[in-house]
Amino acid sequence: MPRALLISYIDKDSFFHKLNPVTKLVITISVIILIFITKSFIHNLIIFIFIIPFAYYSKLTKQVFMPIKYLFIIFVILFVIQGLFYPFRETVLIQLPYGFAIWTEGLIYASMISSRLLVMLVYGYLFVLTTHPGDLVSALRKLRLPYIFGYIVLATLQIIPRVQSQMATIIEAQKSRGLETKGSIVKRLRAYTPLLGPLFMGSVQNAIERATALEARAFSAKCEKTSYRETIIMKKDKVIMVLTIICLIIFGVTSWLL
């Protein structure tokens, strides 16, 4: 059976896991704001290195770095394109044939962007590794997140794995029928796009049935809704949030001035 839920969450009994999702969200967003403030590649690297204690305190030291491999291609392309064609190029680093050159400013810009991507990726990943989406939604609902947004997120996480396995079966079936992924563009489109018809029809039927199920469970009730899943903001959460924001301001200002 395929996984029923699309999440990266890994259940561990750690300090970081036990923090309120909102606290972790504040940390993650602060880091993302910070890397858009910084002007130097080195500062970004320092922020990146700070992931190590965080990862250690979430007992996920190795996992946090797993998705870095997906960034590799982007880094290569980034350095090639910006190295060659950066619009504010001034200093030639290496002269290439046919009038091309690798420019210092381009490489600096590329390293800036790639370090930024790296930081966003690991901190974002740490967040989802340690936060169950159900807890996230429940915590955000306490902060008056509209109820339907939470519903959309959770229901989508449930639906996507089933769509994936359904599509995998269909695509396999088309391939085994000889509808190869090669051939002319028209041929390939002809092989796959008709599959979408039943997908649309089925989805509408599904939506109507599910809507009746939700209506039968008082979904459109106008009263204040309550939550079965409970997330509490504790004292340590408040302390950490305040500290995070102070750090953001201090690091932001110093990095901007330096």
Binding site: Y151, A155, E209, A213
Partner: peptide, 16 residues
């Protein structure tokens, strides 16, 4: 309380 045919769409999708 109303229960319909398809077990799949009887679930709300929001219950983890």
């Amino acid at each position: 309380g109303l229960i319909m045919q398809s077990p799949d769409t009887q679930l709300t999708g929001a219950g983890m």
